[in-house]
């Protein structure tokens, strides 16, 4: 994207153009901060962390903040789901920088800061709320296009009329167990014999729903994309699936 934009700028006659090819991830990896814009702080599906004291948080905070004072942050940060986008703020820059480093060092990939920190938020007239501190992190991942929720997947397990469950794991994996009601076609066979697919899935109608699973969601997503291109009504499950015999656990 950056090279394309640079190309457009070249055509428009700009003479002094450089591209940071390594991109935003390399910037983050170098330990430098990134910032969330105010709209994202207000409305994004984020975990917003107030690093100031609980007293300051109760008196005035950015709406939706979870109070996690910096003094105890190293003990409490693991309450934040590792996949969640996290936005940090404080009234001390060194606290936000240090908390950001703790998160980066512990595998959090989506950490950003409030531009100008808490004072910057106030300066631009960002809204504030007060009241008893909130310490519970209540974050839920929003499903991507084509994903099926665990609840909906379980509904299909209980009632075969909801959807056909398609298991795309390898034969070896299935040998140690599978969902009793699922159909099994390993991912590599699914794509090799796509024309035979309908024959393999018993009684499948083109508009019938197919919920695809593997052990994490990676293969299920690949299978989803293949089926979708052929106009199947497919969805995929992103969750840890582990089967022993007919007994399978699903963990988000």
């Amino acid at each position: 994207m950056s090279t394309k934009s640079a190309g457009q700028a070249v055509k428009a006659g700009y003479k002094n153009i450089r591209v940071m090819l390594a991109g935003e991830p390399a910037w983050v990896k170098a330990g430098y901060p990134t910032y969330a814009n105010y709209g994202w702080v207000c409305r994004g599906n984020i975990v917003l962390i107030d690093l100031r004291s609980a007293e300051k948080d109760a008196a005035a905070r950015i709406p939706r903040s979870v109070s996690m004072p910096f003094a105890d942050f190293a003990d409490n940060y693991d309450e934040i789901p590792i996949k969640a986008p996290v936005v940090l703020y404080s009234d001390k820059d060194e606290e936000t920088t240090a908390a950001m480093k703790i998160l980066h060092d512990n595998g959090y990939k989506k950490v950003s800061l409030v531009e100008g920190n808490f004072l910057g938020w106030k300066r631009v007239g960002g809204s504030l709320e007060k009241g008893p501190v909130v310490t519970d992190v209540r974050w839920k991942r929003i499903l991507a296009e084509g994903e099926v929720s665990v609840a909906e997947f379980e509904r299909a397990l209980a009632d075969p009329k909801v959807a056909t469950i398609l298991d795309v794991r390898t034969k070896a994996e299935v040998a140690s167990g599978k969902f009793p009601s699922s159909q099994h076609i390993p991912l590599d066979e699914l794509c090799k014999d796509m024309d035979q697919f309908v024959c393999k899935i018993r009684d499948l109608q083109k508009d019938e729903k197919i919920y695809i699973h593997c052990t994490t969601g990676a293969r299920a997503e690949m299978a989803y994309k293949e089926l979708k291109k052929r106009d199947f009504n497919a969805f995929y499950l992103v969750a840890e699936v582990d089967c022993k015999g007919n007994d399978c656990s699903i963990e988000e």
Binding site: A9, Y14, R18, M20, E24
Partner: peptide, 23 residues
């Protein structure tokens, strides 16, 4: 692209740095 051209500075010799996503 239209927006890009509108938002770029008038001075054609000003330093522009572009970046995008990475891995």
């Amino acid at each position: 692209m239209q927006e890009l051209l509108q938002n770029l500075p008038k001075e054609k010799d000003k330093l522009l740095i572009f970046y995008c996503g990475g891995p």
